[in-house]
Amino acid sequence: SWSRQVGRALDMCSAMILVLSPDGLESENVDDEWNYYLDNKKMIVPLLYRECRVPFRLHKLQFIDFTRQSYDTALSHLVSALHVIQQ
């Protein structure tokens, strides 16, 4: 099933890219996924795609901001952050 596949992928992946937007914050699935990672002390890289009110639990994480810089600049910041995690 879809939810079993997602659950398996959540456990298999070592870290998460969380795409934040007003729709992302309204999604129950997205909410469950990032809370699952935080509860299991797994790494999250939040990516601010569209302006929204960031949940309190995510405040201490460093964001890659796609709203205030070009796509290419933000992408290169994201790639650097992900390469550090991969090592």
Partner: peptide, 30 residues
Amino acid sequence: FFVSYARKDQPFVEQLAIDLKRRSIDVWLD
């Protein structure tokens, strides 16, 4: 990397996944 996102953001996320794969970063999208 697991990518968590809302359906409405899918076009952005799909482009992002292509760009990350080009840089040898594997992502999982549902």
